[in-house]
Design a protein around this nucleic acid. Sequence first.
DNA 1: GTCTATATACCGATAGAC
DNA 2: GTCTATCGGTATATAGAC
Lengths: 200, 200
Amino acid sequence: MRTVDPAKHEAKRRHILDTAAACFARKGFDSTTVANICEAAGISSGSLFHYFPSKRAIFTAIFEQDERDIAKYVAETADSDDPWGDVLGLVDTLVEPLADPANAGLVMELVRQAGRDDEFAAMVARSDSATREGLTELLRRAAERGQIDDSLDLATAATWITALVDGLFSRASVDTEFAPLDQLPTLRLILTRSLRAEPR
Amino acid sequence: MRTVDPAKHEAKRRHILDTAAACFARKGFDSTTVANICEAAGISSGSLFHYFPSKRAIFTAIFEQDERDIAKYVAETADSDDPWGDVLGLVDTLVEPLADPANAGLVMELVRQAGRDDEFAAMVARSDSATREGLTELLRRAAERGQIDDSLDLATAATWITALVDGLFSRASVDTEFAPLDQLPTLRLILTRSLRAEPR
DNA sequence: GTCTATATACCGATAGAC
DNA sequence: GTCTATCGGTATATAGAC
């Protein structure tokens, strides 16, 4: 018989994470103070540090929370008869977070922190290479079926797909007029014309 | 007869800017302290604040310094008989700063700061719309000559060109293995296949 | 113009009552 | 588990001697 309710604990933890994510997206990691998060979440700093050991730990937990299982997607589509469609499907998944405009700023903040912090960099590198490897595998299947221009290097193609997605996040964070999800058809067009065999 | 040497003053100012740019690229704007810049530049804080009124002013001055005159490029190429080549030339110019790896981090830092600071955002917005308008004009000329797929919206195409460049900066800042300038031929290939009339 | 010294404020994290 | 109170450290910017 336990004295604490794990579900309640988890719910509060999640509440702190969601609140902190909004703060980090708006003000950045460095300029967001623990006091900011506490005020926004309606708790005291003593309480916050009961759930997380440090401000850094909050930031990393935000992204651990939604680290996608690219490998799972790749495995699920192993028997697909349209690998090219699966490539586009994975791109859709990667772009999905942009449905919430705040996520563009949050991801850009992660990118920036990764550029100057080894721990954050390792987290990004792990997620990033998983994405590129997954894309490369899907591209390989598509190439086997003759759906891909065979003069292309698949790893390079995968990297450029992620660069395009990165560009979408960057633009969304810089230009508030930019509606990233409206650009999905154009993104697919670029990918198709650049990568497919006999694309037109 | 002046008692101060303007050239010397300017040289020192530039020295502070260069030193600060390196610090901002490595540690970000928020985590770089004025003391950091002073130590790296070999001066005291009293001296630094003689040249710049605030830390913010140093950051903005870095980018005012190299704000490109896109309009000038567009004007100079007005009589060109290969507008499509001019588009690729402008892209080369935009990517050029990546020759120094530190610039990727610096530009990403600006993007992030712009997402949460009105003054920085205005600076980025001005430079960004100038770039897109310049690209749109070059694309219009290329379209007039039948070099562009005429089913495309030119402003959208210009935005995607900047998104591709943004993606290159983002990747360069995230992945230290990534050699952005080696990717220029691939970038040109993507642009050509996506935008040109009868590209293959 | 450059320095040292410091004002003033705020930060992340902890201690300990309840 | 949550709070209040606060510690030790550090930030930007200024003051004033030289």
